[in-house]
Write a protein that binds this DNA or RNA. Structure first.
Lengths: 244, 244
DNA sequence: GCACAGAACTTGTTCAAACAAGCTAGGGAC
DNA sequence: GTCCCTAGCTTGTTTGAACAAGTTCTGTGC
């Protein structure tokens, strides 16, 4: 059972997405909403805070809240899991491990993962296809304590994130992402089927468990034109999701 | 005078950034913080909510809050203003208008800016340099009502955002951003000094006033290797800032 | 020594009330 | 008709209280 404020937020979100509250329209005032739902104003404020964080409504002290947009950003899970995003967007996603081996962490890897140089890590090279087309090349380094769980996964595992959640209860809760453009190297060009030196969108990321323990470090390269990151920001709140 | 919860948040943030609360350490409990500052627990909860949104601390019901990181993300202003970010990061930034002309909005521009096809808009082509090196080519379309204010700006204006704020009190409060990689076109290559077909990081964005009125639509292309977008997310909250 | 059951603690949710700060529409003065 | 100012509404901040839900640690029993 979701808490009360979450259900009120769901209801308001549905009204916005369904067009009952069109873009530009004012939301009912907090007092009205509180009376209508039979709750205290504080509970309404928690509900609208959720919508504000999603970028759906804006607010200024003294004036009524306004509906800003109708697109809900998928928020954050997508930055951790290509497969989760693709499935939600209605695409068929497949994965294939090309190379996988254990080795000792070098200085850069150790720094990113909070390990000592020489600690064991697992390096995986994985190619992802979207509706049959190769679009993403992942070079991932997993911390040693994760290696056994990752090695047990099948080579064509679709969603590593989901598999690790189901087998180990592991949740990737925090992350840092660096996004830039790079020229395709020889291996990139061959596997993704693009010209060497052509544009690739690169996302480097560190993902961390709920406890703040670094779990994986990855260099992901997307074929240009296949994926776009969409960021929506609304005075203090942001949301990010890849797009077609 | 900032509200009480904001000052408490500032104090906690300083403790984290200063190393008194190292990464991995637990925050004092809400009850302790409330007693220490002489406020109600609700006020403390607002303060730590700020830090959670910044990705500095994480929390799970029942367990003490944990310090997750020491880097504060500059949050959102930077996505609107290249100049503001560069100055904050200690770089010298210059700008130069290469072309500027009024014209009628085409279908794509009208849709992005919420105008009718044929409505007047102002198109500006601007080259930005960071420490003397050309790194960013901006193709910006301003809604007609903004054109007079923009045309009054000097051709070498550093920060358009700041100038519009100072001259018109205009604040860019919301935005949508699409980030991907593209190959450099002929004009891109010439002005940015890169090879044609080489990688560029593209940021397309719509910026909106506080009232939800679209103000500008821009296609910004960064020379590869010059700028990286950094995104940090923490279970529901995100922050974005460009990096070197 | 180890496992299990609680006790104590911590964060999450909700309520009711009060005042502060900012916006808007309507009424009065000109 | 136009301008300004205020009354009333709306969001922002804060208090204090209570219970729910989850975690951690202690101590007992085996």
């Amino acid at each position: 059972m979701h808490p009360r404020y979450a259900r009120i937020a769901d209801e308001l979100r549905a009204a916005i997405l369904g067009g009952e509250l069109p873009v530009g329209a004012p939301l009912p005032s907090e007092t009205v909403l509180a009376a209508r739902h039979g709750v205290a104003r504080g509970t309404i404020r928690q509900a609208v805070a959720v919508l504000t964080a999603e970028g759906l409504v804006g607010s200024r002290q003294g004036a009524r809240r306004i509906v800003l947009g109708r697109e809900r950003s998928q928020n954050f899970a997508v930055l951790h899991s290509f497969a989760e995003w693709a499935r939600a967007a209605g695409h068929e996603v497949t994965g294939q491990v090309i190379d996988q081996r254990r080795r000792a962490a070098d200085a850069a890897e150790a720094a990113r993962l909070g390990l000592a140089v020489g600690d064991p890590v697992l390096r995986v090279l994985r190619l992802r296809r979207l509706d049959g087309v190769a679009v993403l090349l992942e070079r991932t380094v997993y911390a040693g304590w994760l290696a056994p769980a990752v090695e047990r996964l099948p080579a064509d595992c679709d969603s590593v994130t989901r598999a690790l959640y189901e087998s180990r209860g592991l949740v990737f809760a925090y992350g840092e992402h660096l996004i830039d453009a790079v020229a395709a190297g020889t291996e990139d060009a061959r596997l993704l089927g693009v010209r060497r030196g052509g544009p690739l969108l690169r996302q480097r990321r560190v993902t961390t468990t709920r406890e703040g323990r670094p779990a994986e470090w990855s260099d992901d390269r997307y074929r240009a034109g296949s994926v776009t990151f969409a960021i929506r920001n609304a005075a203090g709140a942001l949301a990010v999701h890849p797009q077609d």
